[in-house]
């Protein structure tokens, strides 16, 4: 059973993916960060725009073109952190002003569901509205949610998205945790790096998804996810995922979430070895590392399928070597 068809997509990323799409002109990272190239946000009322944190802004910028042209039965967002910047701004107020009189704007914007609810307000969408925040599998759970809804309501169309932001605070916390490289590495050199850590990324990808084949860009055939740090278990899972979904003979691209972190490379290599003769492409040098980077990968897979002769792409991503996911994307037959 196919999960759903993907129709229109919009992606705001550190690369030229939004207003004009040009992935050959790779934009370079600065200070180990790949920051999103933001579009002009003319469609957002200025008073509203001023209050938006970056995650809400990126999601609004990516979703508005879709919300303005299509009608959706609901909105499903995956975001690990939502507006963490607003959250820490409010936290800093609490500490710096010793719990005095505080302004609530940052507090209201800091709730992770601020993204999905803002999109509902924009479009007066009173339908299903959900926010999945399960770290490196936040987007995958949003995908599964959409797939279940479309199984329950095959005539519906949903807005599905993944978004996360780099903020100074998030960067500080992740740096202390060893998530980013301590030496300067350019994204174009990411896969040559032998050290631990990756480079920070951010972005938002939005998808209009339904069960209608006509006019679709691609089809999401299957998704699987696993919590494990055991290579053998992951390989076993991948092998059975491939077998259940038509075998490896059909797969003509392995889109890998390799992120230049020596600690997690073995997982990517091991999965690659399951598909030894299949061309490899990587995407983290384009979007950087963040918990919902797999939403960028899904967008990229849709573009590859649209603009090449590729028929089936397997996306593999892992987050911190513990949360693993596989998505099988096919052309529309």
């Amino acid at each position: 059973m196919s999960l759903f068809y993907i129709h229109q997509t919009v992606c705001i990323s550190p690369q030229k993916t939004c207003e004009t799409i040009d992935l050959d002109d790779v934009q370079l990272s600065k200070d180990n960060k790949l920051q999103a190239i933001e579009p002009n946000y003319d469609a957002i009322p200025p008073a509203l725009f001023r209050r938006m944190g970056k995650a809400v802004r990126l999601a609004s910028g990516a979703a508005l073109p879709l919300l303005n042209t299509l009608s959706f039965n609901g909105i499903i967002i995956g975001t690990a952190n939502g507006g963490l910047e607003d959250c820490i701004k409010f936290l800093n107020q609490i500490v710096d002003y010793n719990e005095g009189k505080l302004t609530p704007t940052n507090f209201v914007q800091s709730t992770t569901n601020a993204v999905a609810s803002q999109l509902a307000f924009f479009s007066s969408n009173k339908g299903y509205n959900n926010t999945h925040v399960h770290r490196g599998l936040a987007f995958e759970n949003a995908v599964l949610d959409a797939a279940m809804l479309l199984n329950e309501f095959p005539e519906h169309t949903y807005l599905l998205g993944g978004v996360d932001e780099i903020s100074a605070y998030q960067y500080n916390i992740e740096s202390l945790a060893g998530s980013y490289k301590t030496e300067l590495v350019l994204n174009t050199d990411l896969y040559n790096s032998k050290t631990t850590g990756s480079i920070a990324g951010e972005g938002c990808a939005m998808f209009a998804v339904n069960k209608q084949k006509d006019g679709a860009t691609a089809v999401l055939k299957a998704i699987g996810a696993l919590h494990s740090d055991n290579q053998e278990e992951i390989i076993q899972y991948l092998t059975s995922f491939i077998t259940k979904n038509g075998g490896s003979a059909n797969i003509d691209l392995f889109l890998s979430g390799e992120n230049g972190d020596s600690r997690y490379l073995p997982y990517y290599k091991a999965c690659q070895n399951v598909l030894p003769n299949i061309p490899l492409k990587r995407f983290k040098h384009l979007c950087g590392e963040y918990a919902t980077a797999s939403s960028f990968a899904l967008w990229l897979a849709c573009k590859e399928i649209q603009h090449s002769t590729l028929k089936t792409i397997l996306i593999y991503n892992n987050f911190r070597g513990k949360q693993h996911s596989f998505m099988l994307v096919e052309c529309v037959k």
Partner: peptide, 12 residues
């Protein structure tokens, strides 16, 4: 050591 589908939701 759970292995099934794991998720976290935040809708306030």
């Amino acid at each position: 050591g759970m292995k099934g589908i794991i998720n976290t939701i935040n809708t306030a």
